[in-house]
Write a protein that binds this DNA or RNA. Structure first.
Lengths: 238, 238
DNA sequence: GAGATGGTGCCACTCAGTGGCATTAACGCA
DNA sequence: TGCGTTAATGCCACTGAGTGGCACCATCTC
């Protein structure tokens, strides 16, 4: 699964080796693979730059391919769509989330708590140099580009489905009502992540992963509070 | 706002007069408007039929326009995209939801409860003859067509944002933490609706609105339960 | 070295979506 | 009833995303 990557799945190539300089492991790959990863990373970086500068829809794939000196055909061997290339940084995080979830022991926590722990673990794994910068660019683009937003939402939904399928087996969930609860929990998690990232993206300066972790913490804490929110005169009363 | 519809907003024409034969009110419109509504409805019906029969991506807009005897240019004056036409039935429901939300008095309920009441009210308003059939076709298509699913998710997200903006003013929410809770509550609601509709769509036979209301009831009830879901040996324990 | 493998470039093609302009049908008013 | 206004439509040409096919060339294997 590491040497032979799926020939027809550009969405996320094999076990998405995060961004460019995961120096340790990546350098050991055969030359062919390294080259491929290099063009992939060049496409991501150049795309983020180009789209940010000129706007997602004003920039064409031909320009991007010209800049990276790659044919359009090659672009589509690496990414499923124009939106996909700009989404890559976020997708790395969710891939890590899923792989953490596979091995996590739920102990006697709530499922929701276990999910939150997996998100933090995934975030801890995003050690790549420019990752935060890339995610911030990517999310900013998504915020102003409907089609990117739509594709991002869809990706999150697919991820949630994968996670639900995974947990359904690991936790031996058979009662369909528990399955519904599980899927809702997943959706709650993703909603909270969404707002945490949104807030983090609009923070001034260049906040790092720890700032994102803090935002995630507040958002997770707000989940039970959201159920109790009232419309009374003192809105913040619980 | 009823006579002069926005010239450049094909997404949802004015106050989306639901589907075809809302006989009472629609017949009173000037001829021009009626014709426009008729072609709009013909496009929706034919699109659902065509897409269901041949698959969303195997069917082209040219075929659809040929069948309805309308130019492609006219199609895009009525709908924003190929996905949009197939989403129209669902959008009617959410438009009704928003308009109910505008006038609802939150009393001393929880915000989440008020939102659920608005969903039921909106559903009650979907009195149009073939509405359930159209929604079922539409959702089935979305389930098997990534781009439709993505657009649907995006539409729900935009609706949730509108609703949040609306309630933020009506409930005088100023504390950003309450705003976060509000937005989470909206997302919880939408997640629950999503699963309710999914279940309802895969019900055998031709279940009506009351069956959908029942599914919504169970899904809403599962929201607090989802927070407490545990991974213990007896998974259904709370 | 030679032969298999797989990534790449190039080319032609389909189809979604847009802009512009002439045409036609409905409306309002005399 | 006739006429000017308004707005929806049809037609046409065009951009740009995404695909299929095939030849080419670099890398890996022996």
């Amino acid at each position: 699964m590491a040497t032979t990557d799926a020939p027809d799945a550009p969405g996320t190539p094999a076990a998405a080796p995060a961004a460019g300089a995961a120096a340790g492991a990546a350098e050991r790959l055969p030359l062919r693979e390294r080259k491929k990863l290099r063009t992939r990373q060049a496409l991501i970086d150049t795309a983020l730059e180009l789209f940010t500068e000129r706007g997602f829809d004003r920039a064409t794939l031909d320009e991007l391919c010209d800049a990276v000196e790659v044919s359009k055909r090659t672009f589509f061997r690496n990414f499923a769509s124009k939106e996909d290339v700009a989404m890559a940084p976020t997708q790395d995080l969710w891939a890590a989330f899923l792989s953490d979830l596979e091995t996590r022991d739920p102990g006697d926590e709530t499922v929701l708590e276990a999910l939150q722990a997996s998100v933090f673990a995934a975030l801890d794994g995003m050690t790549d140099e420019g990752w935060t910068r890339r995610v911030r660019l990517s999310r900013r683009l998504a915020a102003e580009t409907p089609s990117m937003d739509a594709h991002g939402l869809h990706f999150c939904d697919r991820t949630a489905r994968s996670a639900a399928g995974l947990l359904r087996h690991r936790l031996r969930i058979e009662d369909p009502r528990d399955d519904l609860r599980l899927r809702l929990a997943l959706d709650f998690l993703i909603a909270a992540c969404h707002y945490a990232v949104d807030t983090w993206v609009s923070l001034p300066g260049d906040p790092g992963r720890s700032a994102l972790a803090a935002e995630l913490g507040s958002a997770f804490a707000a989940i039970p509070e959201a159920l109790a929110l009232r419309a009374g005169p003192a809105a913040s009363a619980r």
